[in-house]
């Protein structure tokens, strides 16, 4: 891949008796936010750490803009990463933590103050890391990821510890970074948040790829849409719709119909002479689809 995308191919990590990641392949495109989803222990963190050369793959490759992370010149100018265990020395100030990274990457130390301002940590810049709240630590990690103004961002559970305002801030930040043409890969448990934030999703379970694609497609692919119909003559409508359609009564006298879309139900109702009082698409959300796709694969291994 010549652009700034991420390509994971056949990636596998075997620990003593667990295949943490099992022949995993997916791609992440620039200019979009890609959500990386999976139940606990699915291998998300291990995958991200393999992409970043922190964990050695048993097999397979991961490239960023066509190159392995270890082969990038000035990696933090290309890739910014926030990982769960991204930590700092307890006795060191946030500003000094960033300055150390600046030194090692050949970035002017003044950049530390720029990114601290960008994540709203300026007032705490001179405070020691041990005095930081979880949310402040997370912001410092994001500041570190932004230090080299990278084209690619890889963030593991960035919303951890953030308050609602912080989560909204993060959503805006990541969307604007993607709008600037950057590649943004974000892992998260927060599915409702992901539905708001992500353009694409990569869903894994038990170390294997379950589904990849744009959010809407992934939701649609999980099964036909459900329709909710309210009519005074349900029997006539069901008879007209035929045997290919399942209809189940729900509370309040409505019918949930799977296997027919709006126009088909409308036409059948007209033929059957059944008055329609309500016809709505029951949208499935990412959470439904995620739980359906990963059902039975989320066991602790």
């Amino acid at each position: 891949m010549a652009d700034d995308g991420i390509a994971v191919s056949g990636l596998t990590k075997v620990y003593k008796n667990v295949r943490a990641v099992d022949d995993l392949s997916f791609t992440v495109s620039p200019g979009r936010v890609t959500g990386f989803l999976g139940p606990n222990g699915a291998g998300k963190t291990t995958t991200l750490r393999m992409v970043l050369n922190l964990v050695r793959p048993t097999a397979g490759t991961a490239t960023i803009a066509g190159r392995r992370y270890a082969d990038l010149t000035d990696p933090i100018r290309k890739v910014g990463a926030l990982l769960e265990a991204s930590s700092a020395h307890r006795g060191r100030t946030g500003r000094n933590h960033l300055r150390i990274l600046c030194d090692a990457a050949g970035i002017p130390v003044g950049r530390a103050d720029d990114v601290l301002a960008a994540v709203g940590l300026t007032p705490a810049a001179g405070r020691k890391f041990k005095g930081y709240s979880l949310g402040m630590r997370q912001r410092l990690g994001i500041a570190a990821a932004l230090l080299g103004d990278p084209d690619v961002l890889i963030l593991d559970e960035p919303a951890n510890g953030l308050d609602p305002e912080g989560i909204r801030w993060m959503r805006g930040l990541l969307k604007s970074l993607a709008d600037e043409g950057r590649t943004v890969l974000v892992s998260s448990h927060l599915l409702s948040e992901m539905e708001l934030l992500a353009d694409d999703v990569v869903i894994i379970a038990a170390g294997r790829l379950v589904r990849q694609g744009p959010v809407a497609e992934v939701i649609d692919s999980a099964g036909a849409a459900q329709m909710l119909v309210r009519t005074p003559r349900p029997e006539a409508l069901v008879a007209e719709l035929g045997a290919a359609v399942t209809a189940t009564p729900v509370e309040g006298g409505a019918l949930r119909i799977i296997g027919a879309d709006g126009p088909a139900i409308g036409a059948a109702a007209m033929r059957a002479g059944a008055e329609i009082h309500e016809l709505t698409v029951e949208r499935r959300d990412l959470e439904d689809v995620f739980l359906q796709l990963t059902a039975g694969k989320a066991d602790i291994r």
Partner: peptide, 30 residues
């Protein structure tokens, strides 16, 4: 208009950057 992205200079002598970083690690804790 393209989003204005900062121009980040390259500073330091490549071989010595890491030494400098390590020295700062030592001097920024107790």
């Amino acid at each position: 208009p393209a989003a204005s992205r900062p121009v980040i200079a390259h500073v330091g002598v490549p071989g010595l950057r890491l030494v400098r970083s390590e020295i700062r690690k030592v001097t920024t804790t107790n």
